[in-house]
Simulated scan of single mutants.
Amino acid sequence: MNAEQPLLKVSNLSRFYGGRIGCLDVSFDLWPGEVLAIVGESGSGKTTLLNCVSSRLQAQAGRVEYRMRDGRLRALSDMGEAERRFLMRTDWGFVHQNPADGLRMTVSAGANVGERLMAVGARNYGQIRDTAVDWLERVEINTDRVDDPPRAFSGGMRQRLQIARNLVTAPRLVFMDEPTGGLDVSVQARLLDLLRGLVSDLGLAVILVTHDLAVARLLSHRMMVMKDGRVIEAGLTDRVLDDPREPYTQLLVSSILQV
């Protein structure tokens, strides 16, 4: 992968819900290894945008292009449904705010991780189990819990298991929708430290949706601020937070304690 070429190109993306704007005319590039935070209040359009970019929701206008491992830039709209599903199970990851949405709650922790490996052709049970155990350790889950179902885990452990499930196939792009939402402050801090280390170590590109500007500052290189479905400000994260130019961004920043 050429680091001088964008991994993802989003052009003039729009989505409407009847007469209401979900997102309107959004364009950006994402580079290999870059973390882009999309921030804004509830209803600003950030989750709609994330779902359109990740093909979980169909945009009504615009284009999303992804650079495949052979270096070609492919439009998602030109891919068949099976090809998009395979991409989402292998080269992409999606971390949900509610980990139950990204896990199979009735099978073991090890099976949750192993399923993603099987999607890319792994068939040796011993190797799959060993890899699952290794990933549980990497996300700070005791390896003796490998046969326990996620329903026996705490919220923070479920979120770490969901992260392991997503990263086991070595994706290059991971979408995160409020990954620390709903967790206690101490659990959030531990999860953020883990995420920051994994993103850096693995060179992941990430699109992160969050309403928490402290999370955006800690994890992201660049930030887009959304209001009423539109991107109203964008730039390097520290610049946007330390010197916001738009009145709406200034209001967001002033409403939190500086970190």
Results as ranks from 00 to 15, higher is better:
Glu4Pro: 05
Leu7Asn: 06
Ser11Ile: 10
Ser11Gly: 05
Phe16Val: 10
Gly19Ser: 13
Arg20Thr: 15
Arg20Val: 13
Ile21Asp: 06
Cys23Glu: 02
Asp25Gln: 12
Ser27Ile: 13
Asp29His: 14
Asp29Asn: 15
Leu30Thr: 03
Leu36Ser: 08
Glu41Trp: 03
Lys46Ile: 08
Lys46Ser: 10
Leu49Tyr: 01
Leu50Val: 04
Cys52Pro: 09
Leu57His: 01
Ala61Tyr: 07
Gly62Phe: 06
Arg63Asn: 13
Val64Trp: 12
Tyr66Asn: 02
Arg67Lys: 12
Arg72Cys: 10
Leu73Phe: 06
Leu73Ala: 08
Leu73Ser: 09
Ser77Gln: 12
Met79His: 03
Arg85Leu: 12
Phe86His: 15
Met88Trp: 13
Met88Gln: 15
Trp92Cys: 08
Trp92Gly: 03
Phe94Pro: 13
Val95Pro: 04
His96Ile: 02
Ala100Phe: 00
Ala100Tyr: 00
Leu103Val: 00
Arg104Met: 09
Thr106His: 12
Ser108Arg: 03
Gly110Val: 01
Ala111Thr: 11
Asn112Val: 05
Gly114Met: 04
Leu117Cys: 09
Val120Leu: 12
Gly121Asp: 07
Gly126Trp: 11
Thr131Phe: 05
Thr131Arg: 15
Val133Cys: 14
Trp135Asp: 04
Trp135Arg: 07
Trp135Cys: 07
Leu136Asn: 07
Leu136Trp: 03
Arg138Ser: 06
Val139Asp: 02
Asn142Val: 00
Val146Lys: 03
Arg151Ala: 08
Ala152Trp: 02
Gly155Lys: 08
Arg165Met: 01
Asn166Gln: 09
Val168Ile: 12
Arg172Leu: 03
Val174Phe: 05
Pro179His: 00
Gly181Asp: 08
Gly182Arg: 04
Val185Leu: 14
Val185Arg: 15
Ser186Glu: 13
Ser186Thr: 14
Val187Tyr: 03
Val187His: 06
Arg190Val: 12
Arg190Glu: 13
Leu191Lys: 04
Leu191His: 08
Asp193His: 11
Leu194Tyr: 01
Leu195Val: 04
Arg196Thr: 08
Asp201Cys: 11
Gly203His: 08
Ala205Cys: 10
Ala205His: 05
Leu208Thr: 12
Leu208Met: 12
Leu208Lys: 13
Thr210Glu: 05
Leu213Glu: 07
Ala214Arg: 15
Ala214Tyr: 04
Ala216Glu: 06
Ala216Leu: 04
Leu218Pro: 09
Leu218Tyr: 14
Leu218Val: 08
Met223Pro: 11
Lys227Ala: 12
Asp228Phe: 13
Arg230Phe: 10
Ala234Pro: 04
Ala234Ser: 13
Ala234Glu: 13
Gly235Lys: 04
Thr237Pro: 08
Asp238Leu: 10
Asp238Val: 04
Leu241Lys: 11
Arg245Gln: 14
Arg245Trp: 00
Gln250Thr: 00
Leu251Trp: 10
Leu252Ala: 09
Ser254Leu: 07
Ser255Trp: 13
Leu257Gln: 13
